[in-house]
Amino acid sequence: MSWSAVLDQLVRERGASLYGYAYVLTGDRAEAEDLLHDALVRTFRRGRRATELNAAHAYVKRAITTAFIDGKRRERVRPARSADDVNDLVQAPPGASFPDATTHANAALDLRAALLLLPPRERACVVLRHLEDWPVGRISSELGIAEGTVKRYVSDGLGRLREARPDLEPGAEMRETTPLITRPGGRS
């Protein structure tokens, strides 16, 4: 299959999944679209030999992660986001329950706001570990950092999340309340 056919199939079949991944990292629709577009361009600009859909998906996902981390590194001249900037929503008190679907929506918004407070590498590691459910070894390989460093970033990130939002606890409930689109046949 030619690279252009693979690109077309990738965008058609897995574009939503890749966009969902970029959105969870950035927390912003426009930034996620830009990140995905840049990753697709980087992956296919020279007619890369990605002639198989799964390989192309892996290349683009790696490019998204790398571009996200590199972009955040370059943004150091911009002021950092604070909790007031990110989370201007009225928050429910911890332990409050609602009888309708707003509970899940509020939890997803709370998690999104808390994730946006994390530094880029910590955010990437926490997202890959707890939302994508990747093992530490795969994250290490994907990001090109040592397994111990991944563990430290995940631990530090979870610590910051707990400080910012003590009522949020990572695990299955994070995956259930976070709108993350995955590839067909994958986890949702």
Rank of each mutant, 00 (worst) to 15 (best):
M174G: 09
T182V: 08
L89K: 11
V24W: 07
R62F: 11
R46K: 14
A16Q: 12
R138I: 06
G20Y: 03
G27T: 03
R160H: 13
L161R: 01
E52K: 08
D156H: 09
L128G: 00
A50D: 08
L89D: 14
L158Q: 12
V77L: 15
E176G: 02
D70M: 04
E132L: 03
L40W: 13
P79G: 12
R48M: 13
E75T: 07
T66C: 11
R12L: 06
I69Q: 03
D38E: 11
S141F: 14
N54H: 07
G15P: 11
L180P: 04
Q91R: 14
A55C: 03
V41T: 06
R165A: 06
G71R: 08
S140W: 11
T177M: 07
M174V: 14
L40S: 05
P94I: 13
L40M: 12
S141D: 12
R187A: 12
V154Q: 04
S82V: 01
L111D: 01
R29E: 10
P99M: 04
S141A: 15
P99C: 04
V86Q: 02
D110P: 03
V90F: 08
R42C: 08
E163V: 09
R45S: 15
D110Y: 04
P166E: 06
E75R: 08
P179L: 07
K72V: 06
R175T: 07
L18T: 02
P135E: 07
I145D: 02
A172H: 05
A16R: 14
V60R: 06
S97W: 15
S155A: 14
G186F: 03
S188A: 12
E147D: 09
R123E: 03
T178E: 12
T26Y: 05
T149E: 05
A16E: 13
R152W: 03
V127Y: 03
R14S: 02
V24D: 03
F44A: 13
V150R: 02
L158T: 10
L109E: 14
S82C: 04
H37C: 11
Q91I: 12
P184C: 07
R162T: 12
A39F: 03
V136K: 01
D70W: 04
A32Y: 01
R162M: 05
R48W: 13
F44T: 15
I139Y: 02
Y59M: 07
T43I: 10
A146R: 09
G171R: 04
D84P: 00
A22S: 05
G137I: 01
V86D: 07
A105C: 12
I139K: 01
R81G: 13
F98T: 11
V11M: 15
A96M: 14
D34N: 15
T65F: 05
R29Y: 13
A92W: 09
S97P: 02
G15V: 11
L7W: 15
R183H: 14
L117P: 00
V6W: 05
R175F: 03
A56W: 11
Y19P: 00
Q91S: 15
L10G: 00
A124G: 01
L131G: 04
D156A: 13
T51V: 13
S82P: 01
A50N: 02
H57G: 06
L109R: 14
A50G: 03
E169T: 13
R73N: 11
A114K: 02
H130T: 10
N106F: 13
I139A: 00
L35M: 04
T51M: 15
S141Q: 15
A164P: 08
M174I: 10
